[in-house]
């Protein structure tokens, strides 16, 4: 098994998804079977191959430096589960 239970807990923490103790073992098994399956890519020699950067070989388009947006505080906070005085409100962050 390529992914053990500690690894599941670690990546779940990185991904900010709470996992219960009961979930960890089956997840480790599922993720391992997927990762074991993708291991077959190791068969391919990719020594002199560039990783694909984008499917089109185009340069990044650029826009002009003009203010065209903003001043939509109501739209920005409209769907917020917590908002106060134009701010988003979240549980206190301790640094």
């Amino acid at each position: 098994m390529s992914v053990d239970q500690n690894t599941v807990r670690h990546i779940a923490r990185l991904a900010r998804i709470a996992v219960t103790d009961e979930e960890v073992a089956p997840l480790a098994k599922e993720l391992s079977s997927i990762l074991d399956w993708v291991e077959q890519l190791g068969e391919v020699n990719t020594d002199n191959v560039e990783p694909m950067a984008s499917v089109e070989n185009l340069a990044l388009p650029m826009r002009e430096d003009v203010v065209t947006d903003g001043n939509i505080q109501d739209q920005v906070t409209k769907n917020a589960p917590g908002a106060d005085d134009g701010f988003f409100a979240v549980p206190k962050v301790v640094e």
Binding site: V38, L41, G42, V44, T46, V49, E50, P51, M52
Partner: peptide, 8 residues
């Protein structure tokens, strides 16, 4: 590795 396979 996967992005290289993509190139191929």
């Amino acid at each position: 590795k996967a992005q290289k396979i993509r190139t191929l």
